[in-house]
Nucleic acid binder design. Structure first.
Lengths: 214, 214
DNA sequence: CGCCGATGTGTACACTGTCCACTACCTAGG
DNA sequence: CCTAGGTAGTGGACAGTGTACACATCGGCG
């Protein structure tokens, strides 16, 4: 019987084993269904089979738990982006590949927002800062954060010659803002009622716009 | 002594006069400082000088109040956009004016996000739908919603010949998503730490991108 | 004038975040 | 091997929240 198994059912030991991780996992699950507002300390401890106050050994307060869950969600976003990139193999043409790499970042990002709106909203429900955009806590399984994946794509674009170095600086902001906005508007902004094909189409046009306008 | 004055201090009448409006106003004030999460029924009733349950005569639950406050915030955003437009008088050149009109929508939108982050977040904290984007509840003092202001700007762009009609369809989504994303990232996303000039610069570049890429 | 529907009050309950004192356990040092 | 001390989890308590239910008050309409 592994530690995980022991932790998930009624445990026999006094110590939990990985309560911090269990609380975050519970938080992710609640966020998946109800967004950031659904993250509730007492419910998380209940799911971890532990008394409410045990959470305070690992998180200063609810906001600290929310922050940890939010970081985890960003990591999941990174995973989704990488999954999209894996689904679009390179062709060998450096320029085309670089442009595709940037496009897949956007596609994966939007896909994550649409597939996991609760997690997406949670990821951005907590004030952040550029200095922390590279924090390993926000990274996916491959150790890269969404911001890093975007930066890499833009670097590749410059390397291939498809983007002038003068236009490279801070291009992250433009690309990110564009795609982020679409994600937000699609999941609970005015674009919510749109059919899937319509969203697909809008996504393509948006990415075209970035491609052309960057 | 006006109704407003009577309502704001300890009232003498049993009836409040405009409790619904007072609760929304209180909600806006709380949202201004603490965002959507700070909107609290009991506190709103306290500020209105009324018992907690009185709110339930006017709102089904907290979410209903939140929704009403959110709509009001959208109206305030519309006002801020119109203010920006008023600050950029027309030149007489139809093409230049149309492009400026679109740009001022973006500028006003971002300005609102930066000046009133709490209200901005509140405006988009409630799931919405395109069918309600024109609802008068979301309109500013001139009766237009932000969405309508954007649509008008795009129409002007087509009329002036600066935008091909084929590209007009659903262009709202692209323009809105772009600017909305920047707003979100600036107020509590990774772009938060940026200095004002940096944000100004990013805004200009973003609007250039839309102008070029639409 | 009297009644009735709309508006506000009072009481109550379940639930939350979080503080405090306490307990069970693990482990390093003798 | 035993003990001291820190770490992790428990139990009880409190203030504050959303909200249901029954009741009080009042303005306007017949």
């Amino acid at each position: 019987m592994s530690d995980d198994e022991r932790a998930s059912q009624s445990r026999t030991t006094y110590r939990h084993g990985d309560l911090r991780g269990a609380l975050i996992a519970a938080g992710v699950e609640m966020a998946r269904e109800g967004g950031p507002r659904a993250i509730v300390i007492r419910e998380a401890t209940r799911r971890a089979g532990v008394s409410p106050n045990a959470a305070y050994r690992h998180f200063a307060d609810r906001d600290a738990l929310l922050k940890a869950v939010s970081d985890t969600c960003l990591g999941l976003a990174a995973d989704r982006i990488e999954q999209e990139q894996a689904a679009h193999p390179k062709t060998g043409d450096a320029v085309a590949d670089a442009r595709l790499q940037l496009r897949t970042v956007g596609l994966g990002y939007i896909a994550f927002a649409r597939e996991e709106p609760g997690l997406f909203r949670t990821a951005f429900s907590v004030p952040d800062d550029l200095r922390q955009a590279l924090s390993p806590a926000k990274a996916g399984v491959n150790g890269l954060t969404p911001f890093q994946l975007l930066s890499l794509a833009l670097d590749a674009l410059v390397d291939s010659g498809a983007l002038l170095p003068a236009r490279r600086e801070n291009a992250e902001f433009l690309a990110w803002a564009t795609v982020h906005g679409l994600g937000m508007l699609v999941i609970d902004g005015p674009l919510r009622g749109l059919t899937d094909p319509m969203i697909d189409f809008a996504t393509e046009r948006l990415l075209d716009m970035v491609d052309r306008g960057l």
